[in-house]
Design a protein around this nucleic acid. Structure first.
Lengths: 329, 329
DNA sequence: ATCGTTCTTGTAATCGTTTACAAAAACATC
DNA sequence: GATGTTTTTGTAAACGATTACAAGAACGAT
């Protein structure tokens, strides 16, 4: 493979001139530009990002920290990030932490070692202390899940209000016994959504019952099933369930079917996220739509801005209640 | 941020010695090693991958080419790739082509420009000519979808046999009118699976009917619905459907339900891939299990081997028929 | 004390770019 | 043609690591 010196020699110019042609900057006569371009073609030259990156002290890579790629919620965000990144000539390094601190550290090291120019963190289980320390010298954006007092800019939705609206919808269509399948309350979004759930109940004179609130370790299908199983075992069985993720909802749905009950007639369900699959189940899921793609593009643009050295402000995006079959009884 | 020279100065040694400590090679006295390690700690030094990569002419990045991250089939493979890559100190650059040649080219450029050390291509729609040309000078592995005569090593399953077994299962449980929802036959796997479908029919004295075979542009839910709609419109309606992806199958399932019919009683369905969601539907999907995670790890190991300059052989992995509710009538 | 070995360290080139600065060329003006 | 101004090009120093090779230190044997 040819390098810039060989191109310069072949074209009979200096490396500086070749570089100028390459980057379309500085002034180059048409005649020399053509000489250089010919040489580039002739030698099949491709400029090495390794040299360029070293010289520019950048990697043009953004690190995306997610707990797992299996949750479609994240894939949709990633799409947004990728498109925005590409537009600015950045590429994305995918990092699944599996909420494993060891992996997390490997990935943090990548930005410490300049292999990445910044981080978009979407892992609720991320080690906040480390992240904050890292943020002192590196560009970081929080996406979806965040710590308010970290001083790290974030893009997210109003979780409390979203949950409030979801539960209010259930109340409006006549439900009073409404269960909550939440995730671990060590996560901010879990606490916020619980608040929304409680607020909706209280506002409508419905007592908040502790035995109607369940917690799961993860946001998956299996956890949804298990939680639903417990709910079905309750003496005073709820007529509706609000879950904090579509995957949980789909698990709950499955469990309800397995018990020979019908959704929404016997039990209504509301999910959260509006992943593609929420529209593929039978019945289709009522859910809260998060603007995932947009969250991705915005997060990426914020990060790139931050890398450039600009100040960036946190953003709260709109959500929307999508009413579908699982509550239309 | 400190660099190696500052560390050397602080420790009172040469950069060579620091480098030796960093990489645990060459000989260093215990005494000087400690001096260097102290300096590293004191200055908060982190070796820059940019310098190292340039010197070593490598990026330690593997490029993963997929059509879309939304299909869980790919996410599972990616998990395998990531784990294997990490074990060898490589990282993965995620590249969604959306089967868009322009995007593809952007990503190909990354390896031309040494931003990536190799490619794992999983995009059936990849431009084979370009890929083959690229393979002359770069390390490439095909995963799942492949071109046999490309000379590029691949890891995959026996698609024909898998389809054959799926359809034979349908025949065994009494079906004779079996439709096929296939994807575009420009893809090798589509042609192979069709062969398997036909072989199973012929072997059992069932005529292969052209009007029972359908093609879709993509492997998604919507395409599955549309194809199923056409099938339901047939005069002589099939009693079973074999689809070449779980997403297609889930779409078909939805459409059947919408028409007030039951699976498997009215129509049985077999999918392909065994994505997580195939177990979440109601009824659960009979499907062909591809060892996706394993395919990922193997592909990654093959690629890393190839990058090292070793010869690597293509591999055909085992598949398995998973019988579930959608055919257990 | 001298020599030969072995072990440890240092010097300086290298990887492939970009860019500040200097130098040369081109042009306009008188 | 001499001079000044502008435009175009070239020289050489970064960026931050690794590594041949050379040199120096340490050590035992004589």
């Amino acid at each position: 493979m040819a390098n810039i010196h060989q191109v310069a020699k072949y074209a009979g110019v200096s490396v500086a001139t070749v570089s100028r042609v390459l980057n379309d900057q500085g002034t180059v006569t048409a005649k020399t530009r053509i000489k250089v371009e010919d040489a580039i073609k002739e030698l099949n030259y491709e400029p090495s990002m390794l040299g360029r990156n070293l010289r520019n002290s950048e990697s043009r890579i953004l690190l995306i920290l997610i707990p797992t790629i299996s949750n479609p919620f994240y894939s949709e965000i990633i799409k947004g990030i990728e498109t925005a990144a590409l537009k600015h000539n950045y590429n994305i390094l995918l990092c699944e932490t599996d909420s494993n601190p060891e992996r997390e550290n490997i990935y943090f090291d990548l930005v410490r070692k300049k292999m990445a120019d910044g981080i978009i963190s979407m892992d609720p289980a991320v080690n906040m202390e480390t992240l904050m320390k890292l943020a002192e010298h590196h560009s970081i954006i929080q996406c979806s899940e965040y710590a308010l007092d970290s001083g790290i800019p974030y893009v997210t939705i109003d979780n409390e209000d979203a949950a409030y609206r979801a539960v209010k919808h259930l109340i409006r269509i006549g439900h009073e016994k409404i269960a909550l399948i939440n995730s671990d309350e060590k996560f901010l979004y879990a606490r916020q959504r619980k608040l929304g759930y409680q607020k909706a109940l209280r506002e409508n004179g419905i007592e908040v019952q502790d035995n109607y609130m369940f917690h799961t370790q993860e946001l998956g299908f299996d956890q949804g099933r298990q939680a639903m199983r417990k709910i079905l075992d309750l003496d005073d069985r709820p007529t509706a369930v609000f879950t904090v993720s579509d995957l949980l909802a789909i698990g709950a749905l499955k469990e309800i079917h397995q018990h020979g009950l019908l959704v929404p007639n016997d039990i209504a369900i509301v999910g959260f996220d509006k992943i593609d699959f929420s529209n593929m189940t039978h019945p289709t899921l009522t859910t809260i739509a998060q603007p995932m793609y947009q969250m991705g593009t915005i997060a990426a643009n914020m990060l790139i801005d931050k890398i450039k050295g600009n100040e960036v402000d946190s953003i709260v995006l709109d959500h929307e209640l999508i009413i579908r079959e699982s509550t239309s009884g």
